[in-house]
């Protein structure tokens, strides 16, 4: 797959693989915690998204970038990013459809309890999705090297 003639980027190491296997679920949980708990403590979608995205990078360092790329559906990354933008804009425009101002969360109150709190947390999740998707995407694009992309063999 890679036509580099330098030393390979990936060296298989049981220590790194085991560490990542143990640590990755905790890092992902921590990222989600930062995203969801941004409402009550420091944090939010931007920070949590980066932390969640770093799980994929950890996996790539332990198991190889190409293996990770095959494991993750490329459409999922673009989908996650687009879904984030659509969710955020959807919450904002939905409030306008219910005769409120843009992103006026309390117009959802008749339908959902604590509409404002959950609305803000959903927005944070949406931001986290955008950030995580773009961070992972840039990582894959960069690690593929610039020679790979214009051939179109992987697109």
């Amino acid at each position: 797959m890679s036509g580099r003639d330098q030393a390979p980027l990936y060296v298989e190491s049981p220590i790194i693989m085991t560490t990542v296997r143990v640590v990755a679920p905790f890092v992902l949980t921590f990222g989600l915690f930062i995203m969801l708990h941004g409402a009550d403590s420091p944090g939010g979608g931007f920070q949590g998204g980066v932390i969640a995205g770093s799980v994929v990078m950890m996996t790539a360092f332990a198991f190889g970038i190409d293996a990770t790329r095959e494991w993750i559906d490329a459409r999922a990354i673009v989908g996650l990013t687009s879904l984030g933008v659509l969710t955020f804009a959807g919450i904002g425009l939905g409030a306008m459809a219910l005769d409120g101002a843009f992103l006026q969360y309390d117009v959802y109150a008749p339908y959902i309890s604590h509409a404002s709190k959950y609305g803000i947390e959903l927005v944070e999740l949406a931001i986290g999705g955008i950030v995580a998707g773009v961070v992972v995407g840039l990582f894959f694009v960069l690690s593929a090297g610039f020679g790979h992309a214009d051939g179109g063999e992987e697109a």
Binding site: A74, I130, G137, L138, A144, D150
Partner: peptide
């Protein structure tokens, strides 16, 4: 952030981050 990702894909002329 979203546009940065889209711009990267546009420059590289692909449709997926791969």
């Amino acid at each position: 952030v979203f546009v940065a990702g889209v711009a990267t894909l546009t420059v590289l002329r692909t449709e997926a981050f791969a």
